[in-house]
Design a binder for these strands. Structure first.
Lengths: 214, 214
DNA sequence: TATTCCTTGTGAAAACATTCACCAGAAGCG
DNA sequence: CGCTTCTGGTGAATGTTTTCACAAGGAATA
């Protein structure tokens, strides 16, 4: 199978959510056009994205909502559950834990680590915060699939290394810096500072873009 | 000036942070090669990105760290402060408020709104949560530059409309759904569920990609 | 059946983003 | 100075993603 672009995967994720809504509305079929409309993209994009994985629609009719939803669910690997290790029990970490939405989608936070001794031992949701030093010991084979880094920026690379050593195959990073991990480990970064700065740029441009220097 | 791609802006944001670090390390000059190295990209990319805005380097020497930092700061519009209205005082909203990092970069949360009457009136950091119904009244001309949506998914579009009506020119959305806003309003979405799903896809692919159906 | 109106799947084209490759400037050294 | 080694800026080439446009399938209707 050809390499699938990150943008296609992101859109699949969106289609999946739209299909949930559409199903809740009681619709049985949906066309690429309607699906695209709800995402603010073109119908060709929808059809192209789906075509990388197979032919799920019927000409003249569109896509069966439930069927397409299940196909995308399988494509995204959401038929199984993923064990998540959270590192950093600060604001972001606590917010992630408190939000039960991920659990519903198959992502179970099964352990929380922090370096701050004031936090270690405290209860956070159903879990007790463990000392980060205990990560290697806790990481028995396959204990964690995904690691979430919600630490201050200075600790991020070190934690990433520790998570890789602990055998995670994917990392979600909330620290605003580039992390280096082996190729076999998937890495995604959510950089909120960058999003704010991107907005700042857009708003600055809107008023009157800077002149380009010679 | 030619249209600047979103990827270029994101990288500028990264360069900006790297330059901070480099400056803290006491270095006076940096080459595109070293800058690229720290971001895991190519030096040509760095030079191309910067070239959209001017010629900031000197051949044979590289870029003056402090000067380039200031240029990027100006490009990103970080020389001024931005007034942010936060809607949603739940987990994410509280986490954003508690994290003072954005303030340091020029983003001041000047008001918090929520629909839940149990939350209205409560103190959150230095602010008191107001009823969302008060948003229009609070939005005197230019009161808010940016709106942050940290509400449940069902309320997101409605809140977006209210923020647009309140005169914000940019919106940062944490709800996992596509929002529709006028072209003149800049919109960025942070979709954590999507990031998890993207990881799930990558991890599923790694084991053995699905066969493509005929 | 013939006609009309939808629809998908997909090569080809267009748009966009990244990388290459080289010119020209700058500094150090003998 | 002449030579070497480094550097940025940038047009051209390459690679990637999106959009176009259309053949062909399906259903409904007369």
């Amino acid at each position: 199978m050809a390499r699938i672009s990150e943008s296609t995967v992101r859109r699949l994720s969106h289609y999946y959510r739209v299909l949930d809504e559409v199903q809740a509305e009681g619709k049985r079929m949906i066309s690429s056009h309607r699906l695209a409309e709800r995402e603010g993209i073109t119908s060709a994009q929808v059809r192209k994205d789906l075509s990388y994985f197979g032919s799920f629609g019927r000409r003249g009719l569109g896509y069966n909502v439930q069927h397409l939803r299940e196909e995308i669910r399988a494509i995204l690997g959401l038929e199984r559950r993923w064990r998540v290790a959270l590192v950093g029990a600060g604001n972001i970490g606590a917010a992630l834990l408190a939000y039960r939405g991920f659990e519903k989608q198959g992502f179970d936070v099964v352990a929380v680590f922090d370096r701050d001794t004031a936090r270690v031992g405290q209860r956070l949701g159903a879990l007790v915060v463990q000392d980060i030093a205990r990560l290697p010991a806790a990481a028995t084979a396959g204990a964690f699939d995904i690691g979430v880094i919600a630490t201050p920026i200075q600790a991020a690379q070190e934690v990433a290394d520790a998570l890789v050593a602990a055998g995670v195959r994917g990392i979600l990073n909330f620290a605003p810096r580039k992390l280096f991990v082996p190729d076999v480990v998937a890495l995604r970064t959510v950089d909120m500072a960058m999003e704010f700065e991107s907005l700042s740029f857009a708003l600055t441009q809107a008023r009157g873009p800077r002149r380009r220097k010679g």
